[in-house]
Simulated assay, not measured.
Amino acid sequence: MPRGVVGLVVVLLLLALYGSVVVSRGIGLVRTGNGVGIGIGIAVLVLPLLVLGLIAAELRLATRVQRMADQLAAAGELPVDDLPRSPGGRIDRGAADAAFGAYRDAVEAAPESWQAWYRLAFAYDASGDRKRARAALRKAAALY
């Protein structure tokens, strides 16, 4: 079993334990009959549901991204990480920025191509723009 999956299972088990404690405290606050206690209790019960929804969305994205990577790998079309690196392993920002234009142009030429968006996401990441990288990955996943 991959290490990432083991880590995920451990985190989910800890989250389940935490969730059970939070739910019992939330129910206890609602049962106080006090208006403030009821309000806080409801908030305590709703927040874990929002967190679980966000975690589920991230897991769906991760599985879709993995399927996209598998498909690109099978076709021999995965982006190649051949950018120069510093002795410490950091990608040379100038080289990443220079290579970025080709990926941006590919998306502009084929805006409905999930493959182009997938590659653009990794170009953004190499350039250090994680926010746009994530947005491009979400766009690729939506088009997939």
Rank of each mutant, 00 (worst) to 15 (best):
S20A: 09
Y18M: 03
R119M: 05
D97R: 12
R104V: 08
A74K: 13
R60P: 00
A98N: 12
L14M: 12
Y118F: 15
L8P: 02
P79F: 12
Q115M: 05
R104W: 08
S20H: 00
P84V: 04
Y124L: 01
R138F: 03
D129E: 11
A110F: 02
A57M: 08
I55H: 02
G7E: 13
S24Y: 00
R85H: 13
V21Y: 00
L49C: 15
G76C: 11
T32L: 11
G94H: 11
A56V: 10
G53A: 14
F122K: 02
L72V: 09
R93P: 06
S20G: 05
R85M: 13
R93A: 14
A74S: 14
F122G: 08
R119L: 03
A96C: 07
T32V: 10
A121E: 01
L59W: 12
T32Q: 14
G28A: 10
R104A: 15
G35L: 09
D92Y: 04
G37K: 09
G88H: 05
A109C: 04
P87M: 05
I40S: 10
G101S: 07
R138C: 04
L52C: 09
A110L: 07
L12F: 01
P79E: 13
R25D: 15
S127T: 14
L61Y: 14
